[in-house]
Deep mutational scan, measured.
Amino acid sequence: MDVFMKGLSKAKEGVVAAAEKTKQGVAEAAGKTKEGVLYVGSKTKEGVVHGVATVAEKTKEQVTNVGGAVVTGVTAVAQKTVEGAGSIAAATGFVKKDQLGKNEEGAPQEGILEDMPVDPDNEAYEMPSEEGYQDYEPEA
């Protein structure tokens, strides 16, 4: 019985440690998101679009440190934060509304985080759909 109880105690310690790591990862992701939003706020009209992409990228980098179902929630929060940063930029006159959601080359930025393969159960990952990809044929 002692062996059984000791095993359960060790398992509990492992769960607590994993929860603490997840909590730490979420806190880091939130900190990076805040950094990115402050970065966007300090940019001029020309830099705002690039700044919004930076927020998304920093958040995406930190999301990889967070495991399990938390990833889905962090990704949703990050996307809403990026959308909010863009709205703030438009409201303050840093950028025109028609410039939001495009990178410096004018290509749409939507789907940055949505296409990231995420499995809350950590069982399997699927690649994003290939609808947006084109076949590449090298020139002879």
Rank of each mutant, 00 (worst) to 15 (best):
G36C: 02
P117N: 11
L38R: 14
S9V: 02
G36E: 05
G86I: 08
Q134F: 03
V63Y: 09
Q62H: 06
T81Q: 05
M1Y: 00
N103A: 10
E130Q: 12
V66N: 03
V82K: 12
D98E: 05
E104W: 08
G14Q: 10
E28L: 07
M5L: 02
Q134G: 14
E126W: 11
K80D: 01
E110P: 04
K96S: 12
K34G: 04
V74F: 09
D135S: 11
T81N: 01
K43H: 04
V77N: 03
V16G: 05
D2F: 15
G67P: 05
V52G: 02
Q99F: 12
L38T: 07
S129F: 14
A78Q: 01
G47T: 13
G106E: 11
G68N: 15
V70T: 04
K23I: 02
Q99E: 10
G41W: 03
V15G: 03
G84H: 07
K97D: 15
P120Y: 14
A91V: 05
V66E: 01
G36Y: 14
T75A: 14
G86R: 12
E83Q: 04
E110C: 12
P117C: 11
E110Q: 11
L38E: 07
Y125P: 15
V74L: 12
K60I: 12
F4M: 04
T22W: 04
V3L: 07
G93Q: 06
N122A: 08
N65W: 11
P120R: 10
E137K: 03
T33H: 04
G86L: 11
E105K: 07
V48C: 08
V48F: 11
G73A: 05
E126I: 04
D98H: 09
E57V: 11
E139C: 12
E20A: 09
G36H: 15
L113M: 07
M127L: 13
D2C: 10
V55K: 01
V16Q: 12
A18C: 15
A89W: 15
P120T: 04
K45S: 07
V49D: 01
V3N: 10
E57C: 08
A91T: 02
Q62D: 03
I88P: 02
G101A: 15
G47V: 03
V82G: 04
E104A: 06
L113T: 05
T59P: 01
V26W: 08
D2S: 03
V52R: 02
V40T: 02
K34A: 09
L100V: 09
K58F: 02
E28F: 06
N103I: 03
G86E: 15
K96L: 14
A89I: 14
K96P: 15
E20N: 09
K21T: 03
E35R: 08
Y39F: 11
E104M: 03
G84Y: 06
K6T: 03
G132Y: 14
V118Y: 06
Y39M: 02
E130K: 05
G31C: 11
E110S: 02
E13A: 08
D135R: 04
A124N: 08
I112C: 11
M5W: 02
Q79T: 10
N103R: 13
A140D: 15
G93I: 09
S42E: 12
A78P: 00
V77D: 03
V48Y: 03
V52W: 08
T64A: 08
G47Q: 00
L8I: 00
G106C: 09
A107Q: 10
A76L: 10
M127Q: 07
K10P: 00
K32F: 14
K102Q: 09
V77I: 03
Y39S: 10
Y133N: 14
S87K: 06
K97C: 13
T72V: 13
K60N: 05
A19N: 01
